[in-house]
Amino acid sequence: MNDSFAIYNLGRIPWWQTQAVYTALALLARSAVVFCEPDRPFYCLGYHQNAAELLDQEYCETKQIPVIQRQLGGGLVYLHPGQFFYQVIMPRTSRFFTLNRAAFYRRFLVPVTLALQDLGIPAVYQPIADICLAGRKISGNGAGEIGPAVVISGNVLARFDAPGFLAGLRCHSPLWTQVIGEEVRRLVGPPDGLNLDYAQVVTAIGRRYAEVLGDLVPAAIDAELAAKLDEVGRSMQTWSRPAGQQTTGRRRIGSFKITEAVHVDYLSTCRSGLWWEVVGVRQHESYTRIVVGKGGYC
């Protein structure tokens, strides 16, 4: 079986193509490694998420920040120039595919971690799908089945615009939003940026992936792929799903994922005519911080 992987080194491309390209390659059942960088900031939702629930639509439209929904898992991310994307696409029949999630992520994220170490960044792989530096997430990843293929997509956060990310979030509760902001600033992105450029990252990760996947064959976007890219790209922008905050009588609950290990949970409940709010920072199964606030009349 010919299992060779093509390598598409696309450089800086229109923002939507960064998500459409792996989708198109998957639908064409090709084996490929893609590197790219978006030309402008945008929000990108996981497949099972809801734009209206997580994002302030009016803000995004006023600021002209696009929103796209990828066909992979994971949470809401804010993607922008200075983030270098790596994506691996393979048919489900590939010998490199396994249903074992832990083994799959390890297979494709350890090489990225080693590549960063090659570049002098003491990165650490944090199972199941984060890469961290001094406890801060510097690479986020998602995966899934798209048509006949399987995809893993991730990025190296050479820099991360936390204020930009936070500005577009929908505010369900000022207290919840405040704690989410504190945790994002504490845990996501390198505080002073990484001294890396796109070409360095491509070379280093490409070399490490070649050790796993065999020689990568340089490729360019051909007519078939271009047509599929166009078709896929048109269908990915989203505000179409209705807001779906979980509401149970006079209680509201929610959870916002910061990193693989940390979530900011929210519970509000109506007691004696007032909303009482509890925001908890949950690390794995334990709460490391709990903030209680009093809301308006209910």
Binding site: G46, Y47, L72, G73, G75, I128, A129
Partner: peptide, 25 residues
């Protein structure tokens, strides 16, 4: 992600999705 009641099923077309570990199946 569940289908709707009454949705048609076709053995060649996926009918529901699920997520675990940031993976959509």
């Amino acid at each position: 992600k569940l289908p709707g009641l009454g949705d048609r099923t076709d053995p060649n077309v996926p009918i529901f999705s699920y997520q675990s570990a940031k993976w959509v199946g």
